[in-house]
Design a binder for these strands. Structure first.
Lengths: 221, 221
DNA sequence: ACCTGAACACCGTTCAAGT
DNA sequence: ACCTGAACACCGTTCAAGT
């Protein structure tokens, strides 16, 4: 077969169709062979544009994570944290089938490090000690990843007869799979509680060691 | 080959060796063929004791999750919640390679429903309205699953040169992979903040509608 | 009842051969 | 430079055949 004047494939097109398969049929449905078929090409051809399947998944993830907003730390840290957390969760929820990969894959890529740097910088500029900035970034990530990964509502069978007398407190649990807004509400509840709890910590730190630049917030607002 | 007087295999032994492989070599390293080899048997033999690989993973998960303590709601709900959250996280951290499956698999099994029922019952008995009990269970699960799934410390490259001038706020991030206690500390910080935040919600609910049994805590302590 | 070989329909990845 | 057929070393699962 002659080489076409313009290549049949590009990394972008491979990544785009790959994400389409994941969104439509699930993470396990993405195979190099199936992806090639969708692109009217043989599996081996993909390796001219992508080093391997794992790298392709990282490329797809990079695209999805580009929607995360880490830029809102200018006014105050609770606002920056909330904007980050909500846009992060929205990005994951937009592609739920990709979440297991997104959550487990370490964030070694340039863009991931840039986002981490922005969040950390935003918190430190707001007066948080380095160590707290790290822990707050981690805590927030846990909440986001957990809420995207472990849909609480979908975890329960929709068949009412499953529960009967054996699980008296779950007598309405069969309704949960229809009420997926319970996941969004739970996330907001947890995020509010986390931010409120952190505000308290912030006040305590500022009051305890007002002069010690290494251990306390430097510019409390 | 003659049928032995006692079967070579049992579901328990298959599950135990399966978990050993996962712990030692990772979730992707567990294949029915590799598992069979370890058990000195052919892959097809496993299907006399286990319906398929997915069911086997659920059996293994059930075993691991049996370590979760949902019994500590007798004195007060914050204690019950903390005991649940900590034992849940400990169970996941004991088998980190299994976490992606544990987190994604819906909790349809008998024991999982029993645990959910206990947590929900503990919260409702403490005076939380049904809807809040659900959201608190969900929020706590997010935190636990997120912290077990997305190790913050391990997410950063250990090579200091990666960061240099490009990520000024991450100048000490290369030290994180050695400091995995940052994940435990971050989890405790988030758990404290969550419980404190919820205490506040509890007080607000009790004060707002002291007579309304449907919408407010019934036995505030 | 339980183990087996062989088969089926898949995988990811490599590589010499084509144009 | 880029696509391909063929191959290698794997998968999960089924099933008739053995004892």
């Amino acid at each position: 077969m002659p080489r076409p004047s313009r290549p049949l494939l590009t990394t972008e097109r491979i990544a785009r169709v790959g994400l389409e398969i994941i969104d439509a049929e699930g993470l396990e449905a993405l195979s190099m062979r199936r992806l090639a078929e969708r692109l009217d090409v043989r599996a081996a051809s993909l390796y001219n544009h992508v080093p391997n399947k794992d790298d392709l998944l990282h490329t797809i993830s990079d695209e999805v994570m580009a929607q995360v907003d880490v830029s809102d730390f200018e006014s105050d840290w609770p606002t920056g944290l909330r904007t980050w957390a909500r846009s992060y969760r929205a990005a994951l929820r937009a592609h739920p089938n990709l979440v297991p990969f997104l959550a487990s894959g370490p964030a070694h890529r340039e863009n991931a490090l840039r986002r981490a740097d922005r969040v950390h910088g935003g918190l430190v500029r707001a007066g948080w000690p380095q160590r707290y900035a790290t822990m707050i970034g981690a805590s927030t990530k846990y909440l986001v990843v957990g809420s995207a990964m472990a849909s609480f509502a979908e975890g329960f069978p929709a068949d009412a007869s499953v529960y009967d007398e054996r699980f008296p407190h779950l007598d309405r649990a069969h309704l949960l799979p229809q009420h997926t807004e319970i996941d969004a509400d739970s996330f907001e509840l947890a995020l509010s509680a986390l931010v409120d709890g952190l505000r308290e910590v912030y006040r305590t730190l500022a009051a305890a060691t007002p002069e010690d630049e290494a251990a306390a917030p430097q510019h409390p607002r």
